[in-house]
Design a protein around this nucleic acid. Structure first.
Length: 828
RNA sequence: GCCGGAGUGGCGGAACAGGCAGACGCAAGGGACUUAAAAUCCCUUGGGCCUUUGGCCCGUGCGGGUUCGAUUCCCGCCUCCGGCACCA
């Protein structure tokens, strides 16, 4: 053993040894109970920085702890390898996306390995590999087969100069990220998945996910946005056309003073064509859609509208109300038409005031007689219905039921549910993604590629035009094909799939990563699934996690897997900050992982990350903090070095622990209470406090050095403490734990050891200190036997000199005794 | 605007079930070792006050409340961070 902690040599040595021995390889046939620990796989952007590292340090600690707890742990890693940055790199540097991606994967894989993470690398997957995307395409076909994949026109961001489609994140302030041209919208035929079919289940299943943070569940719930209401059918006065509107406030139907259609509403055309104001209205619609195109993200909340000149009839009151068109009504939500009730909706009120539309109060606040129609603030709370013939005096909540019933009985409307969740647009007009396995045949139409013809290979050697267009459409060998049905010449779909699709099932593929004739073996997949612990960034709280849940539900519905929820427990770790800002390339505040590994090593880096902050909270990077972690490991090293001969020569000697002095017993108590607390801390992922406790124990061991040297019994206590410290550190700092474990005489890897058991008898305390309070303030302390009788505690406390002094001449009103904790004497 | 989360020393953070606020680490200061420095080891370190060994007062964003006792529970504010944002 070297007297100095040479982390470089130690880390390299054990990484090699672990890999050679395959100690992290796992098979489904082991008899131990299974545990699936997963961290979100990264996009291979080029290099890992310490920000990424947090995710993996946390996940690895969990995996290693479970392994030591006797589980057979599946812990895999791979690459979310399709995506736009590869195309940008191709355009900027003239390198093929595939080549760029593969180079990044190689570099990042070696960085992963230098971190000493306990992955079963045999299971590595990359979503851009044909062996993987073959099954992504296959899954598309399954969704297609079950009617969950369909085509419809949808708007995309279009850069007229680049002649290409832009993702939302490529549009910056309404301008093309690359050329600063104003982005417009285009209607294109796109592929969608009917995730809305699962809206209700995605919502109701959230209750089952007890191991998920409440925060994430609430975010998903809001995203799904379920709302119950009524679809009420108004009729157009002149033509008799139906105008259904969706509302959750049907109790206010008698307060409707106008109707508003979305500018894109199908009836608009019919209403305005041939009318005297047609030109004016068309201009309005055009202006509105232009504005929303350019500046969709800004909170330009000014509501503007225009009357169509048409009138609609309120089916409840028979009243005629004007029909307007306004920018704030969205076509894709509800029916694309809303009823305006200015008295009871803030937004409607704003609109009505602006355009001089009438206001009619139909809900009175409880306890108030009635009210003026001339109001400043809409009354949106429940109340008593007024001015509502047949329903006056009814509480509005009850009125909702009665109105809905009345409408259903009379065919005026029906109860219905709406969601904010929209279908998942998966088409990307891009090259570097999994091709959608569809062929367009002039006679057969849309034809799915037969499963046996998969994968539809992505050409690897492509030419990027400076404009940034997807090259796929310009490769005749790719586009031109024959129809699988009739054999006629046909055209291939040139869109690729959203990369969220690739990441919606990778956790299943890890169970059978090389399966070639099926996406996975159902028995093996069902053995491992669901993922017991998923760890990743909060930024995926909605999309990735919702899509994965949708896929899993679908796959369980069609019998391909058993579980209908993919992730039992979810841990969302906080961001890593540098100087108060999220680490990112653009901010230039990245701390290089390579540099950390060179200067401090993997164990120190990992230890700092786990120690500096609780996992869910943000972590401020501090070089001085890293120094502290490094100092601690060096301190541990020196301690073991100092005792190495005694520890080795005593190796294998049983721990009888007889003839211990009280100092020895104190040391053992510290050792075992630490073990107990660290175990509890790890169970609840409180890594920072676990590390703090191990540090405390090592501090105590330093105080115990002289004793250990003086007596063999004490050396036995020291030996036990060293063993337990190493075992406790194994999930955090695997290399130094392994090295020192061997130093003290063990021949098998520490990472194949079981988590140690607490010797409860060693933790028993006999004497404890009790706090004596007078009127809630600490005035004295006393040492008593643990479990002392409350009456006895009271007597002793009252006998204390300090207490007698303070209580002198006052009335003792009450004495509160909390056994083993405190005595509080209340005096007046 | 709505929905979450968080405010504790100079800093990161701890206190899991209402019971010793500030564990552990960083930074700072002092001492030991050294020719010296680094490293290491030991000690001090929330603020204020008092004549001492020692003791007192204040202190967990702000203002109230419940309680023998509140960082912890309740009510009302303030600030910061995150999510959603015309969703009828």
């Amino acid at each position: 053993m070297n007297d100095r902690y040479e982390f470089r040599q130690i880390e390299a040595k054990w990484q090699r040894a672990w890999e050679e021995e395959g100690i992290y390889h796992v098979d489904p046939h082991e008899t131990k109970p299974k545990y699936y620990a997963l961290e979100m796989f990264p996009y291979p952007s080029g290099e890992l920085h310490v920000g990424h590292t947090r995710n993996y340090a946390i996940g690895d600690a969990i995996a290693r702890f479970r392994r030591m707890n006797g589980f057979s742990v599946l812990h895999p890693m791979g690459w979310d390898a399709f995506g736009l940055p590869a195309e940008n790199a191709a355009i900027e540097r003239g390198i093929q996306p595939a080549e760029w991606t593969m180079g990044n994967i190689r570099r990042m894989r070696s960085q992963f390995k230098r971190l000493g993470l306990s992955y079963d690398w045999r299971r590595e997957v990359a979503t851009c590999h044909p062996g993987y995307y073959k099954w992504t395409q296959w899954l598309f076909l399954q969704l297609f087969k079950h009617g969950l994949a369909y085509r419809k026109k949808a708007q995309v961001n279009w850069c007229p100069r680049c002649q290409t489609v832009l993702a939302n994140e490529q549009v910056v302030d309404g301008l093309c990220e690359r050329c600063d041209t104003e982005v417009t919208k285009r209607e294109l035929e796109q592929w969608f998945f009917k995730i809305t079919d699962y809206a209700d289940r995605l919502l109701s299943n959230l209750d089952k996910l007890e191991g998920w943070p409440e925060k994430v569940k609430i975010m998903q719930k809001n995203w799904i946005g379920r709302s119950e209401g009524v679809e009420i059918v108004f009729k157009l006065k002149d033509t008799g056309d139906d105008i259904p509107v969706f509302t959750t406030r049907h109790d206010t139907v008698f307060g409707v003073t106008y109707l508003v259609l979305a500018p894109e509403h199908p009836l608009v055309e019919k209403i305005i064509s041939g009318s005297s104001r047609e030109q004016e209205i068309r201009k309005f619609i055009h202006d509105v859609s232009r504005v929303s195109e350019i500046d969709r993200t800004s909170d330009l909340t000014e509501k503007i509208g225009i009357p169509t000149g048409a009138y609609a009839i309120n089916p409840m009151s028979g009243q005629e109300v004007p029909v307007w068109i306004a920018n704030y009504v969205l076509l894709h939500y509800g029916t694309g038409a809303v009823m305006g009730v200015p008295a009871h909706d803030g937004r409607d009120l704003e609109f009505a005031k602006k355009y001089g539309l009438p206001i009619k109060v139909v809900i009175a606040p409880p306890g108030e007689a009635c009210c003026q129609d001339d109001i400043d603030k809409a009354y949106e709370d429940p109340g008593i219905m007024v001015n509502s013939p047949g329903f006056d005096g009814v509480p509005s909540e009850e009125g909702k039921d009665r109105i809905a019933e009345f409408m259903e009985r009379n065919g005026i409307g029906r109860r219905t549910v709406n969601y904010k969740l929209r279908d998942w647009l998966i088409s990307r007009q891009r090259y570097w993604g999994a091709p959608i396995p569809i062929v367009y045949c002039p006679s057969c139409g849309i034809v799915p590629v037969p499963e046996e013809d998969l994968p539809v290979m992505l050409p690897l050697d492509v030419e990027f035009r400076p404009s940034g267009e997807s090259p796929l459409a310009y490769i005749p060998e790719f586009v031109n094909t024959t129809c699988p049905k009739c054999g006629a010449s046909a055209r291939r779909e040139t869109d690729t799939m959203d990369t969220f699709m690739c990441s919606s099932w990778y956790f299943i593929r890890y169970t059978c990563p090389r399966s070639d004739d099926e996406p996975w073996d159902p028995d093996i997949a069902n053995h491992w699934l669901p993922v017991d612990q998923y760890t990743g960034g909060i930024e995926h709280a909605i999309l990735h996690l919702m899509y994965s849940r949708f896929f899993t539900m679908f796959l369980s519905d069609v019998g391909l897997i058993e579980t209908d929820e993919p992730f039992s427990r979810l841990l969302t770790q906080g961001m890593v900050l540098k100087d108060g800002a999220k680490m990112s390339k653009s901010k230039g505040n990245i701390v290089s992982l390579e540099e950390m590994l060179d200067t401090y090593g993997a164990d120190t880096t990992r230890l700092f990350i786990l120690f500096a902050s609780p996992p869910e909270r943000d972590l401020e990077w501090s070089e001085q903090g890293v120094e502290g972690a490094s100092r601690f490991l060096n301190r541990l090293w020196r301690l073991v070095y100092e005792f190495k001969d005694d520890l080795v020569s005593g190796h294998g000697v049983g721990h009888e622990f007889s003839g211990l002095t009280s100092e020895d017993e104190e040391m053992r108590r510290k050792t075992h209470t630490t073990l107990k607390k660290v175990t509890e801390d790890l169970e609840r992922y409180s890594f920072n406090t676990a590390v703090a406790r191990i540090m405390e124990l090592v501090n105590a061991m330093y105080q115990f050095r002289d004793a250990a040297k003086a007596r063999p019994e004490a050396m036995g206590v020291m030996r036990e403490a060293v063993q337990l410290v190493l075992l406790m550190l194994a999930p955090f700092t695997p290399h130094i734990a392994e090295e020192l474990w061997r130093v003290i005489g063990y021949e098998e890897s520490i990472h194949e050891e079981a988590w140690p058991a607490v010797d409860e008898s060693a933790t028993v305390e006999t004497d404890i200190e009790i706090v004596i309070q007078v009127n809630g303030k600490i005035r004295d302390r006393m040492n008593v036997a643990k479990g002392e009788d409350p009456d006895e505690l009271k007597a002793k406390a009252l006998a204390s000199d300090r207490v007698r002094e303070l209580v002198e001449g006052k009335d003792i009103r009450k004495v509160i005794v909390v056994p083993d904790k405190l005595v509080n004497i209340v005096v007046s």
